[in-house]
Amino acid sequence: MEYVIQQAINALSVGGEYALLALGLAIVFSIMNLVNFAHGELITLGGYAMFFAAATFVGNPVLLLPICVLTAVVAAMLFERIAFRPVRNAPATTGLLTAFGVSIVIQNALVIFVATRPKPVPVPSWMQGTMSFGGFNLPVVQILETGATVCAVAGLVLLLTRTNLGLAMRAAAKDFTVVRLMGIQANRVILGAFAVSGFLAGLAAVFILARRGAVDPLMGFTPVLKAFVACVLGGFGSLLGAAAGGLVLGILEVVLQATLPSDVAGFRDAIVFLLVGAALIWRPTGLLGTRAELGDKE
């Protein structure tokens, strides 16, 4: 029984992590048709900020957590301002390739100026323990991550329904021109979307780093790949689809991890992608996607 509960919370936390990342991708995509390949580098940069802060002026590891989130937010907004603004109205492929370039630039800049080898990131020790929850021993990180995901999604829903910026983002996803006709500044909406996506990535980064305990230049790639797949699985551009896709992907991974024999366990990611591919052949627009042409706005 305890094993089942442990695996369930594990699945929820992994799924939650993918959902956070996928939501960030989907928000940006829905508004400006950009697949942010460099989304994973937000995680990496958050991690390096923690590493540098810990090495210089921050003694208490708890303080590193907001630094990580803040760095991801600022980095996301800088990406938009510097790299993505020139390709704002370009076709989706152009934006994707730009983001791909940004991702390579960041990775290699970190290789040049820091190092290829992983650097340790101190995490509050209580995050790495387990806690007793209704008689079961569960890892603190996973409980926190599940809780944080729920809070973040709730906050996102409030933002999107209760604030003018959120309304404008939802409206911009459908018809950006008319949003501008309301006098709302396009730059502000897009920057807001990037800030939100950076916040969600920063939040996910906190937990990713708490698990790994170290940061390296290439660490952002695997999580963002999962988030891509979650978005495609859920239907690209749909926020609900992104969250659902992330959750499904996380659950699928944990189930495979628990059931695969050890000699094929290394193939887990390949198997997950193949299953997702099979699902897409059956439903090319994703589980919740309805658009005729996937990835193209009407």
Partner: peptide, 8 residues
């Protein structure tokens, strides 16, 4: 798959 889906 079309567009972005195919690229991913």
């Amino acid at each position: 798959l079309k567009g972005v889906g195919a690229e991913i």
